[in-house]
């Protein structure tokens, strides 16, 4: 085991990431074997491009959510509002698009801005008022749910299809582009680019440095003369903004958004993040790990659905995953101390 850890390639990519990648492959094989057994339907062949695309649909928007919440967890906080905020953004922007006939580009921007607004709210409440992050984000989750519904007058909102008469459907190309016969997974590419940008922010910029150090030892950073409140708020703003971006990728695939929902995505985003090696106690975060964690969640979700089981099994498994992973993290920390 130690010899593997010492290997130069392993060190560069990260031991955890490799383990996760192996888990991903194993999971795929597991589903490929199980699905035909469990699901007697003739069409239930897991190994197909269609299933991968379907899983990628999920991974797209969930990826952005997880990336966002990684920043917050890195500071030692948590954000439970991301799912409903994503929906709220999609609802408000979608309403303006479909009912008020605003130009699409403007609506896309609005979508992101709603996310940013909630992120700012959460950040200010937690850092300047000193409220505990979990209950604060739960409260803002309620506000997001309510606000989304109020703005659309409790109606669900359906974003335009690709071939929509208004010509507003072009945003769908952000998710998937049809080039001749091939479907190009644009969304995935954008997600990876987004992840790279996030990784650069986290590992190579001042913001990322401060965010990680604040999560590790906030007081030491403050005593070094840094404005910790500002940088910590930034983490929440990033999270909210990414939730706004996630909204675009959600409606690009699933079209319709219902008001009042979205909280199940919170846990799944956190699960992906935590699986990837980001520690709930703060200070340690891995964008690459989060990405693979999201892929695992996407695969899990797709596999369970294809097996004919309900989504509820996913809820249970997600809950168990987080419990186990966080426990392992706690244990290893205690051993170190």
């Amino acid at each position: 085991m130690d010899k593997i850890k010492e290997n130069a390639f392993v060190k560069k990519v990260g031991f955890n990431s490799l383990v996760l990648f192996c888990i991903l492959i194993l999971l795929y094989i597991l589903f490929a074997v199980l699905v035909p057994i469990v699901n007697s339907d003739a069409n239930a062949n897991f190994v197909s491009w269609a299933h991968i695309l379907s899983a990628m649909n999920y991974a797209c928007f969930m990826g952005f959510l997880s990336l966002g919440v990684t920043f917050v967890i890195a500071t030692g906080g948590i954000d439970f509002s991301i799912g409903p905020v994503m929906f709220c953004a999609a609802l408000i922007a979608g309403y303006q698009l479909t009912m008020k006939e605003w130009p699409l580009a403007l609506c896309l921007v609005l979508c992101i801005l709603v996310g940013t607004a909630f992120g700012t709210l959460n950040g200010l409440l937690v850092t300047y008022l000193g409220l505990p992050s979990f209950i604060t984000s739960m409260a803002s989750m309620m506000i997001a749910k309510g606000l989304g519904s109020v703005c659309t007058k409790t109606q669900p909102v359906s974003w335009p299809q690709l071939s929509d008469a208004s010509g507003n459907g072009w945003y769908r190309n952000l998710v998937r582009t049809q080039i001749g016969d091939m479907t190009f997974p644009t969304g995935l590419v954008i997600l990876v680019i987004g992840a790279v940008i996030c990784a650069i922010i986290l590992n190579k910029t001042k913001a990322g440095r401060y965010i990680l150090c604040i999560g590790s030892n906030r007081e030491a950073v403050r005593l070094s003369g840094v404005n910790t409140k500002g940088w910590e708020t930034l983490a929440y703003i990033l999270c909210g903004t990414l939730a706004g971006i996630a909204a675009i990728f959600y409606v690009g695939v699933y079209t319709t958004v219902q008001p009042g929902l979205g909280d199940t995505f919170n846990n799944e985003a956190i699960a992906g993040c935590v699986m990837g090696g980001t520690s709930m106690t703060g200070g340690v975060a891995s964008i690459g790990g989060t990405l693979i964690g999201v892929l695992i969640m996407a695969l899990l979700q797709e596999g369970i659905m294809t097996m004919g089981l309900q989504i509820n099994y996913q809820y249970i498994i997600t809950g168990l995953i987080v419990l186990v992973v966080v426990y392992a993290d706690l244990r290893s920390r205690r051993r170190r101390n």
Binding site: Q310, T318, G319
Partner: peptide, 23 residues
């Protein structure tokens, strides 16, 4: 015994029972 933060632990059980009820 596990030493988990209560909000996280009960968040997980919240998810688990949600799925359980439906199943």
């Amino acid at each position: 015994k596990g030493g988990h933060a209560p909000f996280l632990a009960t968040l997980c059980t919240m998810m688990i029972v949600r799925g359980l009820g439906a199943i």
